[in-house]
């Protein structure tokens, strides 16, 4: 199966371990990622904060490029990229922005390709098929599935799962033979793009998420977002420096991309998945 692939900047930047994981894992499941030719940044938080029109135009250009390449489906592994693409489709359907957007981005724009997040890609592969392909059941894993903000919110844009109590990631994790925990922070925000500009916020929120997962018996957190991974994995040492005294010990919470866990279950090595390039590598 070939699907259109919009990596976004993070996966070609400091979250390139996520792309490595996706290609290794999905490749083994016969999903080939066809990268959109000459894609551009979606503008992320900066665009929707400072220039609304630009926040539609930049992803609209990518949608148009995907359509030009003939992709019926467009996989965006970053939930922010994915949400921005979906917002464009909503704007096209709702207030007739299609004509003006097409002019702005210098390309025809239909807005009819199906935008997918990582969980949906696994759902399309089929959880039964996934289960059948498992070689190494992940029995030692007790995962806290962390959705963060934008996989499910805003619900009138994403139309995905229950935005307060989502369970779709747990279903994928269960297919790998791993256990999951009920916990309180699965849809709370990690501070996302504020990693640099407002670190206090990120450390506070990441600390709450990490310690709640630990308190509920999880031995790892599973994410499907590059920014969630940055804030929970790369910033975990900074979280420990600030809040470690409160606990008397370091958190040491491994943070997997969802494709890492599926990949391990399929028998792919941690090195092939890029897990050895994470910051926290063992509990």
């Amino acid at each position: 199966m070939n699907i259109g692939y919009y990596p976004g900047c993070a996966l070609h930047g400091s979250s390139n371990d996520y792309e490595q994981s996706l290609r290794a894992c999905l490749g083994l499941l016969d999903v080939q990622l066809q990268e959109i030719k000459d894609w551009i940044c979606c503008g992320a938080t900066a665009a929707h904060s400072l220039n609304h029109k630009l926040s539609l135009a930049l992803p609209a250009r990518n949608l148009a490029l995907a359509e030009r390449d003939g992709h019926k489906q467009l996989f965006a592994p970053c939930p922010l990229c994915s949400m921005q693409l979906l917002k464009v489709q909503k704007a096209i359907a709702g207030n007739g922005a299609r004509g003006e957007l097409a002019q702005i981005v210098e390309a025809d724009l239909r807005g009819d390709s199906q935008v997918l997040n990582l969980i949906q890609v696994f759902q399309n592969i089929g959880l039964d098929r996934l289960k059948a392909a498992v070689k190494i059941p992940q029995k030692e894993i007790t995962a806290a599935c962390y959705y963060g903000c934008l996989l499910t919110r805003p619900p009138d844009v994403t139309h995905f799962d229950d935005f307060e109590q989502p369970t779709s990631m747990e279903a994928v994790v269960a297919a790998t033979g791993a256990k999951t925990v009920d916990w309180n922070y699965k849809t709370e925000c990690c501070g996302a793009g504020m990693t640099m500009a407002n670190e206090d916020t990120v450390l506070d929120l990441a600390h709450k998420i990490l310690s709640n997962a630990a308190a509920h018996g999880a031995n790892c957190i599973v994410v499907a977002c590059p920014m969630c991974h940055v804030n929970l994995d790369m910033k975990q040492e900074a979280v420990n420096r600030r809040y470690g005294k409160k606990h008397g010990k370091k958190l040491g919470m491994v943070v997997y991309y969802l494709s890492d866990l599926v990949g391990l279950a399929l028998g792919i090595s941690a090195e092939q998945l890029g897990i050895d390039r994470h910051f926290v590598t063992k509990a």
Binding site: C9, H12, S14, I40, A46, L50, L58, M196, A197
Partner: peptide, 28 residues
Amino acid sequence: AVVAFQKAFLDNIRRNGRLAELELIGLY
């Protein structure tokens, strides 16, 4: 800081089309 970061981010995309992380951090 937040305002500066968002502005630097957009300027970066305007120049490069895709995010150049080190350049963003430096100018921010």
